[in-house]
Design a protein around this nucleic acid. Structure first.
Lengths: 174, 174
DNA sequence: TAGGCTATCCTTAGCTT
DNA sequence: AAAGCTAAGGATAGCCT
């Protein structure tokens, strides 16, 4: 009934849609089994030519969470590697301590960036952030503004037409 | 040999790892078949208890791209819905045109947020952005700063201890 | 740790309803 | 479109090396 060996080739028909639907269902089932059997987290994103919005498993919220955690773990892994390299290169405790503080700050900045990203996607409200995080978030924003300003100045130098500029003033009266 | 009906339950053993490995391989194969057979894009993120970094299919870069496109499509869908609602409520062309400009601006803001997100993940460099995008990006940052400032003021009112504050000054000499 | 084997169960292409 | 049917082919749990 079916062809002997199914070579992964693009089928030409509306049967492609049927296959897509069936197999997509099968994959989500497999994913569900994997997560249940092994107690792990997983998510999938499948672009559907038949829907304007991609299929997301198990849910939009969970997928968002899983993806965010994935990115967070990438950052943490990168940070860890930096620390390892630092301690390997510099044996003295004092030096290592200095580097650690530096990495800590960088880690905090990256965390703030993640918070900003969450804000963009509506997962977090700025109003719910603790005060200390707000201050750090401000410094991250400041850094981005500096980058923008630098770029603007370069553009200004290269071409004489007037353009807008941004100035950020931070007052810390703690 | 195998139990009659495999009820999705968490197995207790190191066999869970074997199952995890086998099934993960199977799922990635299924995903590959789906994308090849039906010509669609897809990606998967599976948290592995045995690796510090989650399994990502088909690759970290592609998954990043697929996820970004997914989020982008969500934004576009939202925008499209807003436009439809707007045109349905207001029949007159003039009104519709005004609303359209408004939505266009909002769409631009959301696009800027996406660019900021890409910046955070190192996909885009601020220095490569065109000048007009830089100006819009600045306004997005400004809005976030305003949110931060509002929150800070609320905190200041509710508790008397001194705290830091952010002030944003924007000079637009176009 | 990884890979092979195999009986058994699962998935699904091609149909029909 | 959606759902059911069926047999061919695929996936895999429990072993083994």
């Amino acid at each position: 009934m079916r062809k002997k060996l199914k070579l992964p080739l693009i089928t030409n028909e509306r049967s492609r849609k049927a296959t897509f639907m069936k197999r997509k269902k099968g994959i989500t089932k497999k994913l569900h089994e994997l997560t249940t059997l092994c107690g792990v987290q997983a998510c999938g994103v499948i672009y559907s030519p038949y829907l304007s919005v991609p299929e997301v498993w198990p849910s939009r919220e969970t997928a968002n969470k899983v993806v965010s955690q994935w990115k967070m773990m990438l950052v943490m892994d990168k940070t860890k590697k930096m620390v390892n390299q630092e301690t390997f290169l510099k044996r003295r405790i004092t030096k290592a301590t200095e580097s650690w503080k530096k990495v800590q700050k960088e880690n905090k900045d990256l965390e703030m960036k993640n918070i900003m990203f969450d804000c963009h996607n509506g997962n977090t409200f700025v109003y719910r952030l603790p005060k200390c995080d707000l201050r750090d978030l401000g410094s991250v924003i400041e850094q981005h503004l500096k980058d923008v300003n630098r770029r603007m100045e370069i553009l200004k130098r290269n071409d004489d037409e007037s353009s807008s500029s941004l100035v950020l003033v931070i007052t810390d009266n703690i």
